[in-house]
């Protein structure tokens, strides 16, 4: 199955202590931020620090870097310093058009060639943070084969939409729906925005449940305490695993018998249900949740 990105944790790029320890919390991806988490006076320092951390520290997870947008005075310098250190992924914020992705892709391609890295080995993801970006979501998602995921940058998007956060989250409905559909159509992952009230565990858990139901693959997190909660919600339950196993068993038995119609407990099983069961078991296997599984 595709690489799991249930939790993508932001780490401020100009804090050596946080950079050094970022890998110990169990996030699927850590995102070193040299954008909003770093003041304009410290951009130069943060990109050097992040590049050196990537070169010298062996992280047990995927390492991404959130650069400044390519149209700012900092974006190209970020890439010039950070790409030679070979991060796994570059996250472009405030993506609005396919051209934004292609501009970064071109710079990465040149850096891979110059540094002798395998072509295409540095991946990309984009955060959409404006209504214009939402309208162009599919074009952004499918602009480059480097693209692995599409995310929402929540606060900027809500400002652009001229609304604000609520506890029920309806203000994100249009954007989340569009992001998931665009990402799936492009064959990449969808990652939800951060939940900034880190002391509200119940609200956080409810939001993860909602975005999982919408089809998201993971969530951006801003505090290590949020990681386990995300992983708990995204993990299949034992009941779901048992059901998936029964579905596949019934499917295999029907195939062996040459039966065209398959049912389990009186309910018809067809292609999408089998595919869903296979996905659930692949997820469970990846998490080591099935005894005796490969």
């Amino acid at each position: 199955m595709a690489r799991m990105r249930r939790s993508m944790m932001f780490v401020p790029g100009n804090n050596p202590g946080m950079l050094i320890n970022a890998g110990i919390y169990g996030a699927d991806t850590i995102i070193f931020c040299v954008e909003d988490a770093v003041s304009v006076y410290e951009k130069d320092a943060a990109r050097q620090l992040v590049a050196n951390a990537i070169r010298n520290i062996k992280y047990p997870c995927e390492v991404a870097v959130r650069i400044n947008h390519i149209s700012t005075p900092y974006g190209r310098d970020d890439l010039a310093v950070i790409l030679p250190a070979k991060p796994d992924m570059i996250r472009l914020p405030k993506a609005e058009t396919a051209a934004d992705i292609l501009d970064v892709d071109e710079i990465i391609t040149a850096a891979e060639k110059k540094c002798g890295f395998e072509a295409g080995s540095i991946k990309m993801m984009a955060a959409i943070e404006t209504c214009k970006g939402i309208m162009n979501a599919y074009e952004i998602a499918s602009a480059s084969p480097r693209m692995e995921a599409l995310a929402i940058g929540g606060e900027d998007y809500l400002a652009d939409l001229r609304t604000s956060r609520t506890t029920h989250g309806d203000e994100f409905l249009a954007a989340r729906s569009q992001i998931v559909v665009a990402a799936r159509a492009a064959g990449i992952q969808a990652i939800d925005t951060v939940y900034s009230d880190i002391n509200n565990e119940e609200g956080f858990r409810n939001e993860i449940t909602r975005i999982k139901e919408l089809g998201f693959d993971g969530k951006s997190v801003i505090n290590p305490r949020q990681i386990k909660i995300v992983h708990d919600v995204f993990a299949p339950t034992q009941k779901e695993i048992d059901h998936a196993e029964r579905v596949l068993k019934a499917y295999e038995e029907a195939l062996a018998k040459g039966s065209g119609v398959i049912s389990l407990n009186g309910k018809m099983i067809d292609g999408p249900i089998v595919a869903r069961a296979e996905r659930a078991l692949a997820y469970a296997d990846a998490l080591g949740m099935r005894k005796g599984a490969k």
Partner: peptide, 17 residues
């Protein structure tokens, strides 16, 4: 208590400035 990689990054930045 900086690691070598942090020392190197800070020296590079100070010199660049």
């Amino acid at each position: 208590g900086a690691l070598d990689c942090t020392i190197e990054a800070r020296v590079k930045t100070a010199i660049a400035r």
